[in-house]
């Protein structure tokens, strides 16, 4: 990476089921992930060839996809002829053109087109680093592909993929419910503090306004030339 960052170290993993999953996965060795990822990549290429066609203008480009709540990162080598995806350690140095960092759920939602990439950037849920053109191209390319992570990941399992997909769907629903519960708990914990912060912010804004009004008032009396009416 080139070391430029869009708030790289600021992103705190959200309280979510993935965070607990990530803690549980902390001791799984990386090689375990490589084969399933390679298979998933093959499925994506077969089903969504347009992704790599759309990325074509960039030439071969290396991306780091970094889910903040998992104990590893993904290294995506986007190329028209030989794209690849593998897991790498959080601290492994890679010469990537760009990285996207955020909670796994947001990354998957982005990949599947459920969230608008721009919206995520506006709200700073996702953080990008490195070559902006590459990130924009990647986001546009996956956006146009209608990727379904569960289906595409499970496709390599062949006849087992049907039942497995049902398990995944159930797990997802459960995760959503847990996420909602966690959100409620989080809200209850920090609501009083948030209320105070909002009051303070409002007061600051009012003060800002008063100061700038006063500055402007001073300037108006001093600076403007007298003019005839048109």
């Amino acid at each position: 990476m080139n070391g430029r960052g869009a708030g790289r170290d600021r992103l705190v993993p959200p309280l979510s089921p993935v965070l607990f999953l990530g803690m549980a996965l902390r001791h799984v060795p990386l090689p375990v992930y490589q084969l399933p990822l390679a298979l998933a990549m093959r499925a994506v290429r077969r089903r969504h060839g347009s992704v790599f066609e759309r990325l074509g203008d960039l030439g071969e480009t290396v991306f780091v996809i970094d889910p903040v709540d998992l104990p590893f990162r993904f290294l995506l080598r986007a190329s028209a002829t030989n794209p690849s995806l593998r897991a790498i350690a959080k601290d492994e140095y890679v010469d990537a053109k760009a990285s996207v960092r955020g909670p796994l759920k947001s990354l998957i939602d982005l990949l599947e087109g459920r969230i608008d990439g721009d919206s995520l950037f506006f709200s700073r849920e996702l953080v990008m680093d490195g070559d902006t053109e590459a990130v924009v191209a990647l986001s546009n390319a996956v956006e146009g592909a209608e990727i379904d992570v569960a289906r595409d990941l499970l496709a390599p399992l062949g006849p087992l993929s049907g039942p497995a997909a049902r398990v995944v769907a159930r797990a997802r629903r459960t995760a959503r419910r847990i996420a909602a519960d966690l959100e409620t708990a989080r809200g209850a914990t920090i609501a009083p503090a948030m209320g105070r912060a909002e009051t303070l912010a409002a007061r600051l804004e009012a003060l800002d306004q008063r100061v700038s009004d006063m500055e402007r008032g001073g300037k108006r009396r001093g600076g403007v030339r007298n003019v005839k009416a048109p």
């Binding site: 700038s212 108006r220 403007v224």
Partner: peptide, 15 residues
């Protein structure tokens, strides 16, 4: 820039 609206611009561009 001067906190004015175009309709009441006081011709500040003349500065």
């Amino acid at each position: 820039a001067h906190g004015l609206h175009k309709d009441g611009c006081q011709y500040v561009c003349g500065e």
